[in-house]
């Protein structure tokens, strides 16, 4: 049985179809990444899966239970890490876990028994009695993650879990998510960080304007949608260089501001030419998920 099954899902707000007929499947034990620019419909999809809002069309099944009809039962076995921290500022770290456990119907003794391991998982054993206001951003995120585990869920939803964190804190969250995957948990992650998706997700889907425009394993997506090598060229003369040479010697050539991106199967001639030419800095690298993302969703800003 799949842990999440979504088919033909639709949600409309006024004139705008925020989720415009998407299909998703999450197999037990996998990490699935839903990628998309701001406003793509990721958070709405997540809220639909939790049964917090009703779809205008399509079907959702979470852990075998139809949602929203049996959403409450489904939520007994899911954990949620929301986009914005909503830890309870009126309680200490430990009380946050205790009180949250109660919402799942855990008895005081049951919750208390689970807390030490969760605090250790979050690296907050020494901060059990601290007030939430005294925690750093990374600590709050880790506590939110620990809180999402209080009911020992089978499926965990994370909405942009590392937005706003410094690199150290992000790496720690990733490490913890890998631990959870090793324990056999299923993880549904939304993000707009490509490196996050590339590192963690077994499979992912790219969502834009309410639709899923590509899906597959990260490597597959890169192989399928984009040339394997990228040469980025910076500097004043980059535009002229692109017109005079770059465009002719790469499969695709794009400009964003002062930077030229050349996509190609063989970058030797580009690199050779650039080495001859002083004043232009460049970076030759393998294509990554971000290149796929930008190719599929475009380079213009989304606000």
């Amino acid at each position: 049985m799949n842990h999440l099954r979504v088919s033909g899902l639709r949600k409309r707000y006024g004139e705008q179809e925020v989720v415009a007929g998407i299909d998703l499947e999450l197999r037990p034990g996998e990490c699935f990444g839903l990628l998309g620019p701001n406003g793509a419909g990721k958070t709405t999809t997540l809220r639909l899966c939790l049964g917090l809002i009703d779809p205008d069309g399509g079907e959702i099944e979470v852990l075998g239970l139809p949602v929203p009809a049996r959403a409450r039962e489904a939520r007994r076995r899911t954990g949620v890490v929301p986009q914005a921290d909503n830890l309870d500022p009126d309680f200490t770290v430990e009380e946050n876990l205790l009180v949250y456990g109660r919402y799942f119907g855990l008895r005081q003794a049951e919750a208390r028994a689970r807390i030490p391991a969760l605090l250790e998982f979050a690296g907050l054993s020494a901060r059990a009695a601290s007030r939430i206001q005294t925690l750093s951003g990374g600590m709050k995120r880790r506590l939110t993650l620990a809180r999402a585990l209080i009911n020992d869920p089978d499926l965990i939803f994370l909405d942009e879990p590392t937005t706003g964190l410094d690199p150290q804190a992000r790496h720690l969250i990733w490490e913890r998510l890998r631990q959870l995957l090793n324990q056999g948990k299923t993880v549904f992650l939304t993000t707009h960080f490509m490196d996050e998706a590339e590192r963690l997700a077994h499979r992912l889907a790219i969502m834009d304007r309410g639709r899923i425009i590509a899906h597959g394993a990260p490597r597959e997506l890169i192989a399928k949608h984009i040339e394997p090598q990228v040469v980025e060229v910076y500097g004043d003369g980059a535009g002229r260089w692109a017109r005079e040479f770059g465009q002719a010697h790469s499969e695709r050539c794009e400009q964003t501001g002062e930077t030229i991106f050349c996509y190609t199967h063989d970058a030797d001639s580009l690199v050779h030419h650039l080495d001859q030419r002083s004043g232009l800095r460049y970076l030759h690298r393998p294509a990554n998920l971000e290149d796929v993302f930008l190719k599929l969703t475009g380079r213009e800003l989304r606000d």
Binding site: L52, E73, R76, Y103, G105
Partner: peptide, 12 residues
């Protein structure tokens, strides 16, 4: 504080 939101992610 979005406390209600947090509670509604649980089976409440």
């Amino acid at each position: 504080q979005k406390t209600w939101e947090a509670i509604m992610n649980a089976p409440v």
